[in-house]
């Protein structure tokens, strides 16, 4: 999945898969905290702008021109 993300231009560091047992509460908290911190450093996703700023017809209009 990370390799596919990289191929489509999304930083693979933005995806994390970890197995945490339901009995490992503290570990879960630690994993999430660390990853949240990492994402904060990476900054907003380039996809976030495109999704919020773009009008539904933007893609079509640019295609026609």
């Amino acid at each position: 999945m990370r390799k596919l993300l990289a191929f489509s231009g999304v930083d693979p560091e933005r995806l994390l898969l970890k197995w945490v047992s339901s009995a490992e509460g503290p570990r879960f908290a630690q994993v999430v905290t660390e990853f949240t911190e990492k994402i904060r450093i990476l900054g907003p996703s380039p996809l976030a702008d495109s999704r919020t700023a773009k009008q539904p017809t933007a893609g079509m209009a640019s295609e026609a021109s």
């Binding site: 990289a6 489509s8 231009g9 930083d11 380039p46 996809l47 079509m60 295609e63």
Partner: peptide
Amino acid sequence: SVKEIDAKALPERLEYWSRVFDR
């Protein structure tokens, strides 16, 4: 075709796929 994409930098790949997917 895959090598062409692999040769691009990360932001270029995103730009390329966003453009084609939006069609």
